[in-house]
Amino acid sequence: MFQKIIEKINLKYPIDVVSKKSDKLMFLTVHKNTAVNTVQYLKDDLGFKHLVLLTAVDFLEQGKFQLTYLLNNPDIKIDIGVRVLIERESATMESAHSLWPTIATYQRELREMFGIDFPDSPGVNDEFILEGWNNTPPYRRDFDTKAFAANFYHQRNSRENNDPSAHMKKNLYPNE
């Protein structure tokens, strides 16, 4: 089944890496320029009508973002994830809102949380969850969440430590 699908896609668009996870799930890595076209081909011609999700992974060391379009074919009950690597610096990706209107919401979230821009996606620059955020996008790995929370929000001081070993060390064996 997967072999047929891969052959069909390969006739039109190049596939870099194929990673088969199980009989029901497979991931394809494609070029940035042909990614949306591949997704459209899967949707229109191969029956992958359902967009499960669009998500991103931050590969800080390689300087890349990996976007995953997870698609589902409800007829043969198979999932295919289309992966695409984009540059981390001034990250931009082609919008796919002409395929599914709902994808605009995912793109809005990615814009806010990762700072990936999707030009022409409707409402992509509107606030999604964070209101008035003026820092590094919080899902980027170079954003230090713990340090930010410690500096930004009022903290309650932690209680006195009553850990038994520390207590015994302090009271019974102060010299060791």
């Binding site: 919080p138 954003f143 969440t145 929370a149 309650r156």
Partner: peptide
């Protein structure tokens, strides 16, 4: 609401 709980290091929730 007392000290942040399991969200003590969240970028988006208040701690007390």
């Amino acid at each position: 609401t007392i000290n942040g709980g399991m969200y003590f290091d969240s970028y988006n929730t208040i701690k007390r």
